[in-house]
Nucleic acid binder design. Structure first.
Lengths: 246, 246
DNA sequence: CGACCTTTTGATTGGCGTCAAAATCTGTGG
DNA sequence: CCACAGATTTTGACGCCAATCAAAAGGTCG
């Protein structure tokens, strides 16, 4: 449905892209990037809350996230929701080998993204081995991060899992330098308590209890979509895979 | 450590490989396969119980599983074990973008596998775009099966998760036609109760209780490493993602 | 400022972990 | 072919973590 051509001056467009280095096109040189640019179908802004990919929809395009945060997940029949991952700027989402998307992708902040038709992606992968290799690396990392999630959440108490999730996200956010420059300010944190619950597969009620406890113990400080880790060591030790020996 | 050359008559060897079509080399034609063969380092047999890949070891080779079953997982500090996946014949394991393996791979039956040095794999991926594309597809499927596992196990009761695991494995086994030809016989099933516990992240004691209950209800029949699903519909309905409405 | 959404708090219930020990199976050697 | 050691599975008692139901309180945004 988004698959229609628009006229972007690609050659310059992609060369200047802020997330270029981080993306699967990061290994390409300027002259190669110029060639890639012509594949970019459209650049779009999506408001917070919008579904960029709907579960069950025909799979025909991929997204390169330039800014903003998204969640990737699925709705179950009973209305509950499982979030598989939180997507950060620079990630490449939606490329698929099946006919329909088996997940949704929803913006949880305003998002800025490029759309690439999947046929173009395939052509790209065919003609630019570098890109294919880079994608392979990305996918391998992806699968090890799923494994980490299994460890981080799977066999853990709600406390351990939440500590893990908070550490994981706030670390990644710091790396992105998306966080506030001002030390005294709370950092931006993309998930609310219900989102966290749906990542971890626990109830939002219980998330609230654990978060309250963390606050009481002086481990974190938070409100709305801001959060700051006050005692990183302690939180990390609660989170640690190898689950804390009992 | 396995990385040393041996002399296999590759050209014929790979062309006749039983799992060729299923493998990441499945799209290659005979003449291309002949060229691939020279990359095969060694063909090996591993007895049940042997670790083909050890966690923390230097990552330098990949495996193409010709026959037998393996588990891929990690040991936690407290000695407990998390199994991430059960590996079937035809799968390609061990290719990695990090220095060390972050998981172990252990044979749970006698295994027959080809070893390929990772440098060779990289060269292969570079020179044979088909193979790279095929690997991309495999990795994408892999990541959706991790997502399925999240759903299948994550938010579920032990009953639901076990039903899911049994359905999943026995379905895959049937597709492989590895199962007995004789209808009255129990089918081969690669995991024991402790393995299942370590896949699902629950205790083996509880696995035993649930399995006993399934037997009592006439859903399955099993002993040692054999198992047969007697009431597929019922088991599937217990297993169903969308968790059974309560 | 009011409607809605998110978070908090309390009381109760049940699933699964834990500890412990018995029973059964496996396959190896005499 | 039988006996025995070790592995695997079974069973029971008990306690705790998190789900559930319910309702109030606080925050956000139009």
């Amino acid at each position: 449905m988004i698959c229609k051509k628009s006229n972007i001056d690609g050659a310059i467009y992609c060369a200047k892209c802020v997330i270029r280095k981080k993306s699967i096109f990061g290994s390409l040189k300027d002259d190669e990037i110029a060639k890639i640019s012509k594949y970019i179908e459209r650049k779009s802004n999506y408001p917070k809350g919008e579904y960029l990919i709907k579960e069950g929809e025909k799979a025909c395009y991929s997204l390169c996230i330039k800014s903003g945060y998204l969640i990737l997940g699925t709705y179950l029949e009973d209305g509950s929701r499982q979030i598989f991952k939180v997507i950060f700027p620079g990630e490449f989402v939606g490329f698929n080998n099946s006919d329909d998307y088996s997940y949704f992708v929803q913006a949880i902040t305003d998002v800025d993204a490029c759309v690439i038709d999947d046929l173009s992606v395939k052509e790209l992968l065919k003609n630019h081995n570098n890109v294919a290799l880079r994608l392979i690396n990305t996918l391998i990392s992806n699968s090890s991060s799923y494994q980490q999630y299994f460890l981080g959440f799977g066999r853990k108490t709600a406390q351990e899992a939440l500590a893990y999730l908070i550490m994981d996200l706030s670390t990644r956010l710091k790396e992105q330098a998306t966080c506030s420059k001002n030390k005294d300010e709370l950092y931006f944190f993309p998930l609310n308590q219900e989102d966290m619950a749906d990542v971890l597969g626990i109830t939002k009620v219980h998330v609230s209890r654990v978060i309250s406890q963390f606050k009481k113990e002086g481990l974190i400080e938070c409100r709305h979509k801001k959060l700051k880790v006050l005692n990183e060591d302690k939180l990390a030790s609660i989170a640690a895979y190898p689950p804390a020996p009992k």
